[in-house]
Simulated assay, not measured.
Amino acid sequence: MTEKLKVFCKQIGGLSDEDLALVDVYFKPVKLRKKAFLWRSGEVCSLIGFVSQGAIRHFFYKEGEEKTCGISLENMFFTDYNSF
């Protein structure tokens, strides 16, 4: 499941096979269902993720309304930099 990340890293960074093997050590594949949360308001983000399929919408609540502040598409890394 980490193959897409390995391909991406090899294309962008020209990493060796030895370096790419570390992807399996440090990245844990997670499948999310539509409308699932990785973390919620008030929680500290403790991950850096990679979108291998689909997209992730980043949003916050302001005055009771959802405000989209970003979208991560396939082959993009993501995190909550302010929280991380």
Rank of each mutant, 00 (worst) to 15 (best):
S46G: 12
Y81M: 01
G49R: 02
V7T: 07
V7G: 02
S41P: 01
L73S: 12
T79V: 12
D19Q: 08
M76C: 08
M1Y: 10
D80L: 10
Q53F: 15
D24F: 01
H58F: 11
S16N: 13
Y81N: 08
D17K: 01
L20N: 06
L22Y: 11
G42F: 06
F77C: 05
F8Q: 06
C45V: 15
V25H: 11
K10E: 15
K10T: 00
F78W: 15
S72G: 03
V44S: 09
E43R: 12
E74A: 13
C69P: 02
F84A: 13
K28G: 06
S52Y: 06
G13R: 15
K67P: 06
K10R: 15
I56D: 00
M1S: 04
G54T: 00
L5C: 04
C9R: 05
K6H: 05
K62T: 01
S41C: 05
F77P: 10
C9V: 04
G64L: 13
L15G: 02
V7E: 05
Y61G: 13
C45N: 14
I12V: 15
C45K: 06
L32I: 00
K35S: 08
D80M: 14
A55K: 14
K35A: 02
F77M: 08
E63Q: 10
V7Y: 10
G64I: 12
K4Q: 10
G14E: 08
N82I: 14
D17T: 08
K6N: 07
E63D: 15
V7W: 07
E43W: 14
I71D: 03
S83K: 01
E74F: 14
M76P: 00
M1Q: 13
V30Y: 02
I12L: 15
I12K: 12
V51A: 15
Q11L: 11
L20V: 10
E3W: 04
V51G: 07
F59N: 08
Y61S: 09
C45I: 01
G13S: 15
I48S: 03
P29I: 01
F77K: 10
V23T: 14
G13T: 13
I56R: 01
V44R: 07
T2A: 06
V44N: 04
S83F: 09
V51F: 13
S52Q: 14
D17G: 09
N82F: 13
S41I: 11
A55S: 13
M76L: 10
L32C: 10
L47C: 04
N82H: 12
K6F: 09
F50T: 04
I48W: 09
R33H: 06
N75R: 04
K34V: 09
Q53E: 11
E63I: 03
K28L: 02
F60A: 04
W39E: 00
L20P: 00
G64R: 05
I71C: 09
L47G: 02
E18I: 15
L15I: 02
S41E: 04
D17F: 08
C9M: 14
G70E: 13
A36R: 03
V23E: 15
Y81S: 11
Y61K: 07
V30W: 09
A55G: 05
G64A: 12
Y61I: 11
F50R: 09
V30I: 14
K31A: 04
G42L: 06
K4D: 05
M1I: 10
R40M: 06
S41T: 03
R33E: 03
F59E: 02
H58R: 01
A21W: 02
F50Q: 14
E74K: 14
L38N: 00
L47V: 11
